[in-house]
Amino acid sequence: MRYILRKFGLLLLTLWAAVTLNYALPRLMPGSPADAAVAKLSQNGPVAPSTRAAIEAQLGVPTGSWWHQYTQYLDNVVHLRFGVSYTFFPQSVSSMVGQALPWTLVMVGLVTVLAFVVGSLIGVAAAWRRGTWLDSLPTLSGAFLAAFPYFWTALLLVFFVGYVFGWFPTSGAYSADAVPNLSFGFVGDSLYHAVLPALTILITSLGGWILGMRNTMIGTIGEDYVTFAEANGLRGRTVALRYAARNALLPNLTGFGMALGGVVGGSLLVEQVFNYPGVGHLLYSAVTNHDYPLMQALFLMITVCVLVANFIVDVLYGVLDPRTRR
């Protein structure tokens, strides 16, 4: 319990640091959001000073000391007030993020866990059959797959599976005429649309898990207790899974937390290719439209999700490894 409390304290501290980073980033950069908005408007003609003042008031260009701004900002973050999106005016940033987040959380979350489980199992098999084709094939293809840019895998699947063969839809999260609800028909339709994006993330992230598990597993296989279990005449599968893999999994779980950020980053590009209405697609439109409030809020939400996922992994680690609970 003390372990979990300590990890929770660390989570709060990290969250605060991430929120502060998010506060500092736009202020460290040249230019101001209001200038950018005015610049966009001025493409259509000269902007009157009164218009400019109105934009500044609307975008909440902060005034006062940095401490005042900072406390104001923290207050807004706690209450999820992120202002108004200029791209999707007059929608609030919070509602835009709220619409996009579930799509990404469900799809990316499920696929990442699946990829971790499958990849770790393949890694166990590869390390156990070290030096045979069962080792070299997954290791080499894993290294190759891990080097695939996520968006490229996505483009290839769109072209070959979606466009040439036409097996799966290549754009959006549900059919254009469907209305989001929780009926079986709609869930089936959105699963059908999620196949290709999910497959992309699965294929591309699998390699990393295979390689990581194989390398830690090779370390544990060299331990005395594994030799001892083998000398006792236990079945190979029992030794591999119950003795070696169980211990090799722990350091890999930490690796899972660390690598999560990379997978989430990659899936943003995947969403962009598939027009999937998740966080990545929204972030892209925010970036191309210089919609800074939306961009900042999205970055904060992505970071918070990854931090919370890391916390869950830490707690899981504590459950699996009794030594951490001391």
């Binding site: 950069m29 972030l283 970071t303």
Partner: peptide
């Protein structure tokens, strides 16, 4: 290590 790298890169590059 835990802050997702690509979103951070995208944000900085956008500014």
């Amino acid at each position: 290590l835990v802050v997702p790298g690509l979103p951070l890169m995208i944000i900085i590059a956008a500014y």
